[in-house]
């Protein structure tokens, strides 16, 4: 048995390559530098995000109490007060916008992804939706002012909701289409092979499988709409009172922030900060809820 010795002979005879990591050679160096670069970029990108959150919590948190949610906005030199009506107004108008844009948007997404992806109507609709995502939202407000406010004879929560729906629609359509396109063809084949009609394939397979993606898109749209002030300027205007009817001018958080942040009173400026924090919290709560609802059941 002289195997061990031959093994040693073998090892000494051939020149073993150097396997240790060295940092200052060509590709290792560029890899390290790029890794550092990516980290720096990531930190830089998150600086504004976290500083905004920090500012909101520090400056808005001070007024985060029950009064904020139950009281009406204060007038000029008054102290105290809250933003209750603006919270209600924002929730109602975003709700109206969601009720309009989500069903229409998802059905349009079904058409684009499944029913007629290659038709002329579909490519036209896709192009328009992409263009609309870039539409300055103030134009949505002006459009609804002409189409709804003038026709109804006044500013209203309904007009505000419709204007927000216009801004939400393209996002919902395009993300719903993408989410449903991701459903594998083999899964649809299986459903057809089981004897599903087209409606059943879409209803039982495509929509449930694409649901998490669809909800992500809906949440993006809702978050955008909740913070959008421009479409409301010409449609819902503002109100210092509680919402009594959907046909009246309606307060909203975004307009309240816009109004109060420009006022020369500390009380109002504090409320503007608090309203901003509430807005962020509302969006956060809805995102978490949609994550829970959209989580795959199994």
């Amino acid at each position: 048995m002289n195997e061990p010795s031959t093994a040693v002979d073998f090892a000494t005879r051939i020149e073993l390559p150097k396997l240790e990591k060295s940092f200052f050679v060509g590709r290792a160096l560029s890899s390290s530098l790029l890794t550092i670069g990516v980290w720096v970029a990531a930190i830089l990108a998150s600086v504004p995000l976290f500083s905004v959150l920090y500012m909101l919590i520090v400056r808005g948190g001070a007024r985060l109490n029950l009064e904020l949610f139950t009281e009406l906005p204060p007038a000029g030199f008054e102290l105290g007060g809250g933003i209750g009506n603006a919270i209600v107004g924002t929730l109602v108008m975003v709700g109206i916008a969601t009720l309009i844009s989500v069903p229409v948007g998802i059905l349009a997404g079904v058409y684009l992804a499944d029913l007629g992806p290659d038709t002329k109507v579909a490519s036209a609709a896709r192009f328009l939706a992409k263009t609309l995502t870039g539409l300055p939202s103030i134009l949505a407000g002006v459009f609804i002012y002409a189409a709804v406010v003038l026709a109804m004879g006044g500013y209203s929560a309904i007009a505000g909701g419709i204007a927000l729906a216009v801004t939400m629609l393209p996002t919902v359509v395009l993300t719903a289409e993408e989410a449903m396109k991701m459903v594998p063809q083999k899964m649809k084949d299986a459903a057809y092979g089981m004897g599903c009609t087209r409606t059943q394939v879409i209803w039982k397979i495509v929509l449930p499988t694409g649901l998490p993606g669809i909800l992500t898109g809906v949440m993006l749209a809702v978050a955008g709409a909740a913070g959008n002030s421009a479409p409301l300027l010409f449609t819902a205007l503002f109100s210092n009172y509680w919402l009594h009817s959907l046909r009246e001018p309606t307060a909203s958080l975004s307009i309240l922030i816009y109004n109060f942040s420009g006022m020369p009173f500390d009380n109002q400026i504090e409320l503007a900060w608090a309203a901003s924090l509430v807005l962020v919290l509302i969006v956060l709560v809805f995102s978490i809820l949609s994550r829970i609802i959209g989580r795959p059941k199994v």
Partner: peptide, 11 residues
């Protein structure tokens, strides 16, 4: 029908 690729539904 049984297909080439296993294709269970996401359920």
């Amino acid at each position: 029908m049984v297909f080439q690729q296993p294709n269970p539904f996401t359920m």
